[in-house]
Write a protein that binds this DNA or RNA. Sequence first.
DNA 1: CATTAAAACATG
DNA 2: ATGTTTTAATGG
Length: 803
Amino acid sequence: MQVASVIVDVAARQTDKEFDYKIPEKWEGLIQPGMRVIVPFGPRKIQGFVTALKNASSAKKLKSIIEPMDLLPVLNPELLKLADWLTETTLCFKISAYQAMLPAAMKAKYEKVFRLREAAASMNEELLSLFHRHDEITWEMAEKEGLLAALRQEVKANRAELIYKVTSKGKKKSIRMIGLALSDDKLADSMNALSANARKQKDVLSYLQAAELPLLPAKEVMEQTGTSNGTLKALIEKGLLVERYQEVYRDPYENRQFEQTEPLPLTDQQQTAIAPILGSIEDVRHETFLLYGVTGSGKTEIYLQSIQRVLEKGKEAIVLVPEISLTPQMVHRFKGRFGDDVAVLHSGLSAGEKYDEWRKIQRKEVKVVVGARSAVFAPFENLGIIIIDEEHETSYKQEENPRYHARETAIERAKFYQCPVILGSATPSLESFARAQKGVYQLLSLPNRMNNQRLPDVEIVDMREELRHGNRSMFSRALFEKLTDRLEKGEQTVLFLNRRGHSSFIMCRDCGYVAGCPHCDISLTYHRYSHQMKCHYCGFEEPVPSTCPECQSEHIRYFGTGTQKVEDELGKLLPQARVVRMDVDTTSRKGSHEKLLQQFAEGKADILLGTQMIAKGLDFPNITLVGVLSADTMLHIPDFRSAEKTFQLLTQVSGRAGRHQLQGEVVIQTYTPDHYSIQLAGKQDYDQFYKEEMVMRKLGSYPPFYYLALVTVSHEDLLAASSATEKITHYIQARLSNEAIILGPVASPIARINNRYRYQCLIKYKREPKLNHVLKSVMEHYTKQHNDKGLQVAVDVNPFIMM
DNA sequence: CATTAAAACATG
DNA sequence: ATGTTTTAATGG
């Protein structure tokens, strides 16, 4: 007898273990570890993942697998092992780890339907008529009609049954193909046998006869011959045509031409940097490289040529980029070099498109994957390199379970395949740079820009000074002057608005009242298009008050300049300027992002105005001025990384200027011009920033000197939350060494979300082998309370967001 | 003692 | 997570 160990699709602590199932004889030898199966679980049917096969089970009773959902495993043995590691290090459920590795389209969909077994006179009339009209009544239908109770009775009486359905969300797309059913000579006979009236049918047959391929898309045949589906159907009926459904991929880049490029000759510094990488590929040796190079120093060409070598070895490559839909230029470079060998995975694709790209990888139809965070799980089996571009980006950390970091995950996979990892950045994360300093990673530097282009000149403007001079607009005199100058010269400008930190809120000028969410301790955000105040945490919404609810004053001010407002002001000050605005509002529609960029690239606009999303990957030759409207909004968020983030962002934005022949200029407007992150970003001096920031981190006992783990506890009752956090803090403290620093319990920076009070405990540590075990037992112990007392405990190992 | 709601339990 | 069983609470 064959038995399969299965992880079931129920994300809960109690079910986070293997359940054994008998493999029916007909599937023996077919069902493999890594496959999805449908299994009975209690009274229902659910999806599960086979993790192992055995000959016997210690379980008292065994049920049988209902059916496999895959013909081949969707998770290879290496990925199954990686899931174990993910579960262990991020303290998530095994099922969550599996699901994170697969495209969302493969998540199971569950449906409950009632079916009539035998009608009885005693039945509810409404119910009978519903069953008369429908074969099945879905659970939702029954709920809406208020028939659930009645149906439950009928099920009990065995006159109806409740059926649990499991389906995969993802649908393979297929198209109808048409071909001739008979060989030529037989066909001739049949054609003669056709009545003279069947002109159209004859047309179709001769069209197909003339075609080179045996099967043609039905749509094409109908268009070309001017016939309708009826004609085809008739021919199929007569046995003259065959119809087949052929699976096709949804190709998001279908109508795009990518000009093929050849490897460029490397500069000396690129040569020096790439040599160790090629060496590591050659020796099949795992090593992590930190490729530290300023913007425009030619990192991408190093990526491309390293991959080239990997492909020559018959291996595969993964390239991670922060958010690829935002950097179409990156896709172009990879598609341009490796053509159809490239699959692309990013959030701009539909679920179906992602599923198709994933299947291309699984079927080994591509060799290179370019994608966002989750692409680190691309199901390759002969990996030769993993590249993480802009490795400092925080989007590489997933903020829901499993809370993994793509960088650590990539390194774990690379260890298995004994292949190199390249971390590329102009402003490496402090963690990575410190590791490079210690020799954990090998540091590769590209200190100079290609063709020794000068870095842009940066001017830091003190906005307090502007105010003192009576300038109350959002443009400093310096920026405005330069802006006008560029307009005259016909050169382009990028205006960057950093809205993270405090987004637009409203405040009463008389009493200082700020509209806050009634369920969360956070101010509401103003949304212009709907003229509503919204809470970004719980979704609460209310119209903007016309008078202050506190003091009835009518002096209500909108704070936190939005892009829209900047656009309006630009329109007033420089009516002749053509402005392209890019933010969440203007790029929400699919493809609009690229369209706007295209517009700007073609010179149809003078000014590109936007938020975060324009900081990355723009490379247009005509941009000679970059303006940062308020550099310090991010500095004030309570996060030990705020200086680092500010520095990274400013450096990155500045890098947009003057990447080609024309010299670039940058204007940074700030209220805190003396802050080292702003000063040093102005000088583009990463090394000095690293030194100064390391001192701060050391003083605060923060990474990279200490690791962090954050425990967040929430409860509807403030006291319950705080006292539970206190107990947890003590419990943890008692089990760790004296080296560990434990902060808490303290209220979270956002003390209440959705009417739940939040407390936290922050653990700073260097080496605590027992920590994961301790945290696990905390969660275990408190899941019990979760059910009865409404307590929620969440653990984030190596958190990025401390709120 | 019946009815209903809440808590405990099991899921192979 | 979710459906079932057990236990407790409510009310006559």
